[in-house]
Design a protein around this nucleic acid. Structure first.
Lengths: 220, 220
DNA sequence: AGCGGCTGACTGACTGTTCAGTCTAAGCTG
DNA sequence: CAGCTTAGACTGAACAGTCAGTCAGCCGCT
């Protein structure tokens, strides 16, 4: 949208501060329960300033949603850049979606998804954004699989269909984990997702050693 | 909870009217955008009467959520009672979750799920309800599979694990359908779900003939 | 001087909830 | 049966609190 290369002016920084604060607040309290006064307080500004930047509450909140998801994808892409092993990437991907993240690291928390869906279901403008977001997500998975095929790590598969089914499964599993289902805990969700992937991709990864990065947060 | 056998008094009917109206309104506008005045108008009553029955707006809305889900499960159970073929049940189950329902038949619409999740994520009381709801849902699937095994329709499988994975997949797919994803349309979601089930259950249902009941709503 | 960042004070609209009291039908009494 | 009582369903009107958004103007730059 903007031609600016990146965060630059003090004004841009302020904007990002607000988006970050808004995203965290939505994750905590929910979209509807987030007041512009709350956002203002978190960035030590007046409510009027928030309106000054975003014009309207709704614009702030929907932009915050997008901001947060963008950060999440950026994180995954960075993780992907660090390796090329399909298995390793897959394990990290599952861990990233199914296993609780360490505290405040990123505001890409689960609560955001529920509100994003809720908004997308009702507001056409958000609906389109969400479609774009999921397209990007599936393409990420698709490319990961294609790379794995190209590298000879697995045989030929329909990467596109796998991406659709697998992302749906991940969504469903992470809902259960996010909602603290006593049956579907993080470990279990992880196992199910990996087993599905292995079966669909025709790989024979037996029992999965937890991935190196982003492991179960036992301590800090 | 109550010892009353069923809907009885005029008062009980009024209550149900309100729950029904509330559920539909939540599905349309969303939890946060539903005013008690709206509910009151739909049942031709004053806002004060709604409070008279439910005490508080929040109680009304959360009860409406539960009311709606109960109806959905009742519907599925009725469908199950009508047959015993695993394949037939499975096909209907998928159709019921992945293919848009005919208009106003039941207020168990998708919009409700998003709000239920959103509430469950934040409010401990709703969280427990949701867990109970999903447990019931998985048990339904589990029993269906066990019946299929007992009837010799398929071989031995881990019904419990299948239920967890399958319900997660269905959730994920129905989200895409509900959010009108251009890639994951109802037919496609249906196919993916059925293929997954067939593979996991070791059945060899080739291409699926659409189920007899609750088919794709082309006409009415 | 001028401009962009910024604010305090305000307001106007909305809405959950209260309350005092009305209406109706059933139950009781003589 | 007539008359009185009671209880429960129901409401209009007001209350009280909340918030998004406005506006006139301040401050610290260049």
């Amino acid at each position: 949208m903007s031609t600016r290369p990146a965060v630059d002016t003090a004004s841009d920084q302020r904007r990002d501060q607000m988006l970050d604060a808004a995203a965290r607040l939505i994750a905590e309290r929910g979209f509807a329960e987030t007041r512009i006064a709350d956002v203002a307080k978190r960035v030590n500004a007046s409510p009027a300033l928030v309106i000054y930047y975003f014009g309207t509450k709704d614009r702030l909140l929907t932009e915050a949603l997008r901001y947060s998801e963008d950060h999440f994808y950026a994180k995954v892409e960075r993780m992907f850049a660090g390796t090329s092993s399909l298995r390793w990437r897959l394990e990290n991907l599952i861990a990233l979606t199914c296993i609780p993240q360490d505290a405040d690291e990123l505001p890409g928390a689960w609560g955001l998804w529920f509100d994003l869906w809720s908004q997308a279901f009702r507001q056409p403008h958000v609906e389109l954004d969400r479609i774009e977001l999921d397209k990007r997500w599936r393409q990420l998975i698709e490319q990961m699989v294609r790379d794995g095929v190209a590298a000879g790590e697995i045989g030929e598969v329909d990467a596109s269909e796998f991406a659709i089914a697998f992302s749906a499964l991940l969504d469903g599993l992470s809902i259960q984990v996010a909602l603290k289902d006593p049956v579907v805990d993080p470990q279990f969700a992880y196992r199910i997702a990996l087993r599905f992937a292995a079966r669909e991709l025709g790989a024979d990864w037996a029992s999965a050693p937890q991935p190196a990065r982003s492991p179960v947060p036992s301590g800090a």
